[in-house]
Design a protein around this nucleic acid. Structure first.
Lengths: 166, 166
DNA sequence: ATAACTTGCTAACGAACGTTAGGTTGTTTA
DNA sequence: TAAACAACCTAACGTTCGTTAGCAAGTTAT
């Protein structure tokens, strides 16, 4: 709290005019980011599109959220486990629900013959690992733009999932 | 320290008969795991093998280390940033050196026409993301064995990297 | 047999932490 | 114009934290 206050240019005790507790800050960051992720993925949801296209869009949506909120993303990804109950359980439920979007896309891809994956859950975990690792290296002024990141990640993952590429 | 002492069944103050400081525990975990990773990847290093085979072996080696040391891996991956100087800088140098093994494999793959990747560093970061995310979900008594994890991850990543599969 | 050592204990320490309480000052509202 | 409010301040609090110091008891070495 003192570090945060220093960054804000006020005293730590002053922060309590704006928030109830340190835990509330963590809750807000985590649940707000979760809302961002849900909002983004629901905005690109189109079950008429091919599974390939759906996955590309989901990846792109996720990358946009991460790269637009690099600091909140870092907190979200690294600190959620410090949430107290019942927020911790609630958070895990949200995460599972978000992951189910990806699982459904993979499932459709398998059903349509677009994808060939040995294990659906594993595929989703690996996709999300690639996505959620971005915050460890991405810099707004870095070489790769968010759209390029999404494109490259999609290309790398899809060509691995695509059945008999070419 | 009190949580750790409770797990050990002794008092927190007693731990200081065995270690110099809390920071020393973190250092030992981080640098010991780094040694494990280097040892494992150097043991499978074979520049005569195809880049594909080299990558499979590197992935397998990494997975073995992670799954043999699940708790240390979690500490290693999530807490390294709390290392104090000069250990923090030293650690980053080690990490970069370890990543260079993967970069070299990717580079050879590109040179030999085995791999087609838009960005070499990005490819390595994504590979390592898939590897280092394993600790978040892997359970020794889980459905997937380490060898299967390595195989699945290799299959998923390589078929994405392999130029014109089939 | 005794000294040295190891590994634990209790008690306590100084520092850091999250937060509360009361006050000040400027702003807004009645 | 005065009350209410907002947002900050200082001071302090109780708790938690990492760690030290001195001691006890069992083990090992001389």
């Amino acid at each position: 709290m003192r570090d945060l206050a220093n960054a804000l240019g006020i005293e730590a005790a002053s922060i309590y005019s704006h928030i109830r507790s340190k835990e509330e800050i963590l809750q807000r960051v985590c649940f707000r980011m979760a809302e961002e992720f849900f909002g983004a993925i629901e905005a690109v949801k189109d079950e008429n599109a091919s599974a390939t296209e759906q996955l590309k869009r989901a990846i792109s949506a996720h990358v946009q959220v991460l790269t637009r909120n690099t600091e909140a993303s870092a907190v979200f990804l690294q600190e959620w486990r410090h949430l107290s109950e019942p927020f911790h359980t609630e958070f895990l439920a949200l995460r599972d629900r978000y992951e189910s979007y990806f699982r459904e896309i993979i499932r459709q891809g398998i059903a349509k013959g677009e994808f060939q994956v040995p294990d659906e859950k594993f595929a989703v975990l690996t996709i999300l690992s690639g996505l959620n690792w971005i915050h460890t290296w991405y810099k707004p002024d870095g070489k790769m733009k968010p759209a390029e990141i999404a494109e490259n990640l999609s290309a790398m993952l899809l060509n691995g999932l695509k059945t008999n590429l070419n």
